[in-house]
Simulated assay, not measured.
Amino acid sequence: MRPLKWEPWFNPEAEKTTALAWIYFPALSPNFFVKESLFTMEKEVGNPLHVDMATKKKSRPSSAKVKVEVDILRDFPKRNNVGIKKANSGEIIST
């Protein structure tokens, strides 16, 4: 079984190449727990849909989760490096 995004014109006979998946960010710095930041990072994997409730409420500070719609036929990145850009110099600091 593969979870799919609901569509009113769903045809169970047609094979889909997309699926829904939860992407997990372990040890993410709390300043990245904003929906816009998480969605920007998720665009590398697929189409971000929403964050889970614990991430939204910041009740699980050790990690964040985002639900994305992914094309299962494409190659996925193994790692997504995140950095902070300094306002005064433009230098990017890796976190």
Rank of each mutant, 00 (worst) to 15 (best):
K35P: 00
A14N: 10
P48N: 06
K56N: 04
S63Q: 12
I93Y: 02
K85W: 02
K43F: 01
F32I: 05
D71C: 10
A87E: 09
P26R: 10
S29N: 14
G46T: 03
A21P: 01
D75A: 12
L4T: 06
E7D: 09
G83K: 08
V70S: 06
V70M: 14
V51L: 15
E69N: 13
E69F: 04
A54E: 12
V82C: 06
T40D: 15
A54L: 15
T40F: 14
K16F: 01
F76K: 01
Y24P: 03
K5R: 15
R79F: 13
L73E: 12
P12F: 02
P3I: 04
E91C: 00
M53R: 08
A87W: 10
T17E: 11
I84Q: 08
M53A: 11
H50A: 07
E69A: 11
K35D: 09
V45S: 02
F25G: 03
K16G: 00
K86S: 14
E36H: 12
K43W: 06
K65R: 13
I84W: 06
F76Q: 00
G46P: 01
V51M: 13
K5N: 03
L49D: 11
L38K: 03
N31K: 10
E13F: 10
P61Y: 06
R79Y: 07
E69M: 12
K86A: 14
S29R: 11
D52R: 06
I93T: 08
S62P: 00
I84V: 08
E69C: 13
A21S: 12
E42W: 00
L73M: 13
K78F: 03
S63P: 01
N31P: 01
K56P: 00
M41Y: 03
K35E: 15
L38S: 03
T40R: 14
T55D: 05
K58V: 10
F33R: 09
I23R: 07
V34Y: 05
A14C: 09
K85P: 03
W9C: 04
W9D: 11
V66F: 03
P48R: 03
I92W: 09
V45D: 02
E7Q: 15
P8V: 01
A64E: 07
R79M: 07
T17S: 05
N88T: 13
A14D: 09
L73R: 12
L4A: 10
T18P: 00
I23N: 05
H50R: 12
P48Y: 04
I92V: 13
V70K: 10
I92N: 11
